[in-house]
Every structure is written in C-alpha cells, then in structure tokens.
Design a protein around this nucleic acid. Structure first.
Lengths: 221, 221
DNA sequence: ACCTGAACACCGTTCAAGT
DNA sequence: ACCTGAACACCGTTCAAGT
C-alpha cells in the first residue's frame, strides 16, 4: 500500500512505522530498503538520512513492537504480575509475526529492549528473588520473556483435515510416535483444550510450569 | 580452506560436508552458493546438480549436525535418558554455532529431524507419559529438545573485565536492575557456578526445572 | 539539511550450451 | 550425466552531486 501523503517530509518515525506496516503486509523476508523507499515514494538512499543501515531499521522496528507492551501491573503477587506482562508481550508480538525472528537476530539490545528487561528484573527482585535466582530465572524464561518461544515444529499455518490425515498415514511407518501423537491430539474429543494444537494454551502451560518451579526455589532460598 | 582434491567428483555428501566446514569457519551469513562453489573449485551452477536450492543445502547441513547426536541410552529412568540425549544434542550443536539459527529457519523438518523427534517422543511414551502430556512436554521443551534455547541477551562472545565494568557503570542510571544483576553475577565469589555467566549451567538449570515439573505431572496423570 | 542518480560489489537462480 | 558461461533480477550501501 503506497503512502497517502508521499510528499510529506520523511522522518525517522515515518520510516520506522512504514517499515513495520510493510513487514506486517508482505513479511520480513520481502522487506528491503529499496521496497520500503518505493512505498514511501522516495529514492532508496533517502532512507539513509534517518537510519544508518538496515540493522538500525530493524532495531527501530523492534522498539515499536516492544513499545506496545503494557506497563507492569502493581500487585503483591509477583507470579501474576510477571505472567500478565509476558502475556501482554505475547499479544504485541502476535500482531507482528516477524518480530520474534528479528529480536533473535539483533546483536545488541536497544535502550527500549533494555528498559523492558530491566523492569522485568525489577518485578522479580520486588517479588523476593535474590539476584542470583533472578539471573537463573532470566535464562530459564529465555525468549518467553518476550512472549515467544521456539517450537519443535514450525507450524505457523494450520493444516486442513485432508492433508493432516494424509500426513499421519504417511508417518505411521517411519515415525510411529509422531503419527500417534498427531492422531491423538487432533482427534481426541476429550481434550481439555479442544481439538488441534492450541499455541496459546501450550505457551501458558510451559510458562506456568516455569513460574511454579521458580516460585518454589524463591521460597527455599 | 580450499579443498585438497578439487578435481574429485562432486557428490551430494561432499557438497554438504564442505558447506558445514565453510559455515564453521566463516559463519553462516558468509556462506553463499558462490563461495561454496569456489571452495570446491567448481562453478556455482555445478552445485545445483546435487542440491535443488539453498534451502535444501541448509537442510542437508542440519541433517549432518543432527546425525552427530548420540542414540538414546537405555535406562529405566526416563528423566535421565531424555536429559542425556538433550545434552548430547547440545554438544553436537556447540560444534556448529550456526546450527540453531538454521534449524529455526527451516520450514519443514527433514526425515533426519523427524526421526530424532520421533525417538524423543518414544522415550517419553516409554517413560509413562500419556500422549497428551507428551505433546505438552514437546511444547514446553521447545528448542531445548535440540539442545539450544533463545536467550534474553545475545552474549555469544564473553566480555573482557574492562568493558564489563564500563557497561555496568553506564547502566547504573538507566537500567539499575540490570546493572545490579551484572555486578553481582560477575563479582560474587560465593557463586556456586564461579564467576560470570555459565551458559551450560543455566541450560541445565532450566532443563532440570522443566523435567522435574513434567515428572510431577506424569505421576499425577 | 535533505534528497537524488549512478555505480559497486555482492546475492540466488534461469537458461541454453558444451563435453 | 555432469559441468559451464552468460545473463537476469534482485540486494545493501558508497560516493559525488544536486537543490
């Protein structure tokens, strides 16, 4: 989508927001300096007045996404507070599916990212975590702190029942355990979560298991 | 390093192993079809007889890394067995630092990767996990199953004491909690782990917390 | 101070041709 | 059956020049 005011003055903010919109529309692998410039009705080199290079552009895009995360809630229960903040981060990231990959690729965290992590550490400290246990907690939560985690299979788009059935049948001989699991998860009507694989449920399942484990260590420290 | 027998016939295996070696040497971002061809003393297009495109090349490289993982040990204790296998995966991946990123980027898992996951599922099932709990366990372990996990900070190379000291001092005003944590982790002589941040310890810490949580759920299912 | 145009040094991959 | 050469359609980024 071409900008409606192509003649408006270019600013860093306009460049970054246009980049976020473009990545949302066409995906991060299709985002190039040249296409972004074209979208803004400008020659590629014009961007370099507002952004040193592509990495700085990506950094600024991540800052916009992180900036959408809600501030921490104030509550006595550290577990609820951290949980809510992480789930808010997840909601922000979900609006921009390219964000996890870009966050992982960044060499150095930006001030915005540092502030986010700093306040997360603050929440743990306020909840009674020693500095060392806080450090371990950060490692244990890893990218979950940002609201995402690397999954075993890259199942970004859901399968239609036909191809799923075919997949399961094909896998039965070479990968019997995967076939059994897929069959059960997608067919079992008894499942609490309903049929199929609910990413949100799985994220919270693992998150709660880690928070519970950390809480136990916190009490015994 | 140029191949010692540039005139030997090109095979898929020779191409893939040369690609792994090149990535180990110069990093994955510097690995291009053209440089790989040059390294093999061959014109770029010669590679396309053995590999359909770059993605298939990356797939084959991952297969080599996954192939280096030890087979499962046979023991009554599922926790020890899974733990050992994951730590073996970690050792393989550590030899090829580019592998985590490539594994994450793969759209569809190869047969080799599928076999690895299938046998992991088998280990959990043999340990008494229901199919559904096995499914949750896979999500909870995520990329840890492959021996890696996304960290909050990308601290691939260790800092020298001088710049670390500077960083902590600079952070004290804007990011007080990060500064406190870095200061304590890197200075505390009481630390069980020794000074600084031990990636391996942190990986096992989180892994064991998850395995313990899963074991509790297994018993109560 | 900000934008432009042309150029450089790279990519992955196609096609048609060679042996 | 396997390798080659030239070409295409892209990249990010430089430099010197325009307004």
């Amino acid at each position: 989508m071409v900008d409606t005011q192509p003649r408006a003055r270019l600013t860093r903010d306009r460049v970054l927001h246009a980049a976020v919109d473009l990545a949302d529309e066409v995906g991060i692998e299709a985002l190039s300096m040249r296409k972004l410039a074209q979208n803004l009705g400008v020659v590629p080199m014009a961007l370099y007045k507002h952004v040193a290079n592509k990495e700085e552009l990506l950094d600024g895009m991540v800052d916009i996404v992180i900036g959408e995360i809600d501030p921490p809630v104030t509550t006595a229960d550290w577990k609820m507070a951290v949980r809510q903040r992480i789930l808010s981060a997840r909601r922000s990231l979900r609006r921009h599916p390219w964000a996890p990959g870009v966050i992982e690729s960044l060499a150095n965290p930006s001030p915005v990212v540092l502030s986010y992590i700093d306040s997360m550490i603050g929440m743990l400290r306020a909840g009674g975590f020693s500095v060392h246990l806080t450090h371990h907690a950060l490692h244990a939560l890893g990218s979950r702190l940002y609201g995402f985690s690397q999954e075993v299979f890259n199942d970004s788009q859901p399968l239609d029942p036909g191809t799923l059935e075919l997949m399961i049948r094909e896998m039965k001989v070479g990968y019997p355990h995967i076939a059994e699991m897929l069959g059960t998860v997608y067919h079992d009507e008894e499942s609490i979560v309903g049929q199929g694989c609910d990413d949100q449920f799985e994220f919270e399942f693992a998150l709660d298991m880690l928070l519970k484990g950390l809480d136990k260590l916190r009490k015994s420290q």
